[in-house]
Simulated assay, not measured.
Amino acid sequence: MKDLYPDIEPFHHWRLQVDDVHSLYVEECGRRTGIPVLFLHGGPGAGCEPYHRRFFDPERYHIILFDQRGSGHSTPHASLQDNTTWHLVEDMEKLRRKLGLEKWLLFGGSWGSTLALAYAQSYPERVSGLILRGIFLCRPREIQWFYQEGASRLFPDFWEDFQAPVTRDKRDDMVSAYHELLTGKDELRRMAAAKAWSVWEGRTATLLHDEAVEHHFGQPHVALSMARIECHYFMNNAFFQQNQLLEEAGKLAGIPGIIVHGRYDVICPLESAWELYKHWPDSELQIIPDAGHSAAEPATRAALVAATDSFADRLS
């Protein structure tokens, strides 16, 4: 990943206790007095990775990363208790106040784009800009496409493995069937379901199959939190009203944004990015012609770094 900025270590890592249950892991990197930017990871439930720090010029940015409720190094791991979109939005606002920041740039992909939009529509006065990748609006049609019928036609071999933990009589509602497995008391079945759910996503995340991505998604710690939390959110329409993020896109007026989306994104098809772009006049849409969903694909990485460099110039 030579097109990213060099490896960097946090200058500070700490925990933010957001309620009686959840403690969030937070990292700060780069320049303490730089332009504040908050990295929002995907999933929900995926957690941050070291390479996520590298999308930003450390000489110009104060880079803030945190693991959302139940994810990564945050505790309790894979917890569904008090874990909703709106809890996460308020966690972000608590973090902003704790850091004493007036505004910050938000950078998020996939579910991270969803959460960035939800926060920006809730606290538009606190957002200096948005860099979004792999737009996910969490509408039922998007969940249906990836977890019931649609992507299954493009990857029938991988889909067969995804179906395997679910008995045939329950395959007409895969999300509900998985929710039963992932919240059940049988630990072996729960873990097998978590791995199958997560690996399905990892296998389809890139235009060309990437074994390293699949391996990461299959790691037990990652798989359990991502599968449980994603399925919990999708069972509840991500706690949104119908089509809420598009209907409230007017609240983004005056907030500049860059949308980066792979032409061949199977997890989050381009349609959602196009619709958001049409509803948000202050946005710019960059369609990457040779990419799928993952932020780690070369052309997508390059576009995201160019976007952070552009905002660094704009916000300096």
Rank of each mutant, 00 (worst) to 15 (best):
P50I: 01
W104Y: 06
G34M: 00
I8S: 14
L38G: 07
G112P: 03
V37Y: 01
V26M: 00
F39E: 06
R133G: 09
S113I: 10
G42E: 07
D82V: 08
I8R: 15
L117E: 12
S128N: 02
E28Q: 15
R60Y: 06
P76C: 01
D7M: 08
L105S: 05
Y51P: 02
G109E: 10
F11M: 09
E49H: 14
I135Q: 00
A118T: 04
D19V: 02
E28W: 00
W14K: 11
G72S: 01
N83Y: 03
V37A: 14
W111S: 05
T33Q: 14
E59K: 15
L80R: 15
G109D: 10
A116D: 05
W104D: 02
F66H: 13
N83P: 07
L80E: 04
K98H: 14
D67L: 10
R139G: 12
F11R: 13
D67I: 11
Q121W: 04
A120C: 10
V37R: 01
D3K: 14
P6M: 08
R69Y: 05
D57N: 15
S79P: 08
I8L: 13
H52D: 13
Q81D: 14
R54Q: 15
G72Y: 05
A116W: 03
W104E: 02
P76N: 02
D7T: 10
P140G: 06
P50Q: 00
D67S: 13
R96S: 04
R32H: 12
H77K: 12
D20M: 05
E125P: 12
E28S: 13
D82F: 10
L80M: 13
Q17G: 08
E28C: 03
R133M: 06
Y5T: 02
R31Y: 02
L115E: 06
D20I: 04
M1R: 14
P6W: 07
G42N: 09
D7L: 08
R53P: 06
R97N: 07
V127R: 00
R96V: 01
R69W: 03
F136T: 00
Q17N: 15
P10R: 12
F66E: 06
Q144W: 15
Q148S: 12
W104H: 06
W145P: 09
S71A: 15
E102A: 12
H73A: 06
P140T: 07
V127Y: 04
P140H: 10
G72K: 05
L4W: 09
S74L: 01
L24M: 05
R139P: 12
S128C: 11
G134D: 01
P6L: 05
T85R: 08
P50F: 00
D7Y: 11
S122E: 14
L130Q: 06
F39L: 13
G134V: 01
A116T: 04
F146C: 10
D67G: 11
P6F: 11
R141P: 01
T75F: 05
L101E: 07
R126Y: 06
H73L: 09
